[in-house]
């Protein structure tokens, strides 16, 4: 047990390199990884912008963006309709691609051992930092409530949210409303964070066998990253549709 505890305790959980920017403590590794994900996304966006075509043969980048947009547009249309909140589609497309790229930048199994013996990844997925997921989830939270207020009015919307479908469930509805951003952020955080811990655990294996579970896990992590990005975008759409639905719109 002592032997087992010794390497395990060398797994660094939630360790970040920090710095002080603008008087705030920031996790620089998260910000660099986030910036890299954003850079990749922006490069893809600008490639599309330069070569977008409706009559010629679309490029691979355009096909990627079209596939994402069509998929998300289908989801938005089937759950709430495109006209209720026109910024939902760009928001979910951005969320999906940004989270996807952010999750996938850790695909390269590049790990290094820090001076104190801990195995760290060169590029940690930003979603393994609570700041990243909270920023996105709270943004979504604020946006869909704003859309709800605009749809049902300053007074009408809080009443609608509290009442839900059955009036006596109002306390549960309120709890559910608070749980939404928490579950939305922690679901993504937990999945990606678990991936980081898994990599740390696999790194404890002897080098001659470590590559096999590492390759397997990284492959599965790609799938997890895709699924989590999709779920985040899907739930965003669902929350928007719940916030913007009206009583007479029930079917």
């Amino acid at each position: 047990m002592v032997n087992a505890t010794l390497p395990v305790s060398s797994i660094e959980v939630g360790h970040h390199t920090t710095a002080t920017w603008l008087g705030m403590t920031v996790n620089t590794d998260t910000i660099y990884a986030t910036a890299l994900a954003a850079a990749v996304t922006l490069v893809l966006a600008f490639i599309l912008r330069a070569k977008v075509t409706s009559t010629g043969v679309p490029s691979g980048v355009q096909l990627f963006w079209e596939a994402v947009t069509v998929q998300m547009r289908g989801q938005v249309q089937s759950s709430m309709g495109l006209s209720l909140a026109p910024f939902v589609l760009p928001l979910v497309v951005s969320l999906f691609v940004f989270i996807l790229v952010a999750n996938w930048i850790s695909v390269l199994p590049v790990q290094y051992t820090s001076a104190d013996g801990a195995t760290l990844e060169l590029l940690k997925p930003p979603a393994s930092d609570i700041n990243f997921v909270l920023a996105l989830a709270l943004l979504v939270f604020i946006c869909y409530h704003t859309a709800g207020f605009r749809r049902s009015g300053i007074i009408g919307y809080p009443i609608k949210v509290a009442k839900g479908h059955v009036a006596f469930l109002a306390p549960i509805n309120l709890v559910e409303e608070i749980a939404k951003p928490i579950s939305l952020s922690l679901r993504l955080f937990g999945n990606i964070f678990a991936g980081v811990i898994m990599v740390g655990l696999i790194a404890l294996l002897p080098t001659y066998i470590m590559w096999a579970p590492n390759a397997l896990w990284k492959t599965f992590d790609l799938f997890v990253g895709l699924i989590q990005a999709f779920i985040f975008a899907l739930l965003t759409i669902l929350y928007f549709s719940q916030a913007t639905e009206t009583q007479d719109a029930h079917h």
């Binding site: 705030m24 403590t25 920031v26 998260t30 951005s94």
Partner: peptide, 14 residues
């Protein structure tokens, strides 16, 4: 911590 605001800013740009 402060990372929140930087991530938010980056995402808003994206």
């Amino acid at each position: 911590n402060g990372t929140f605001f930087f991530v938010l800013a980056i995402f808003l740009i994206v």
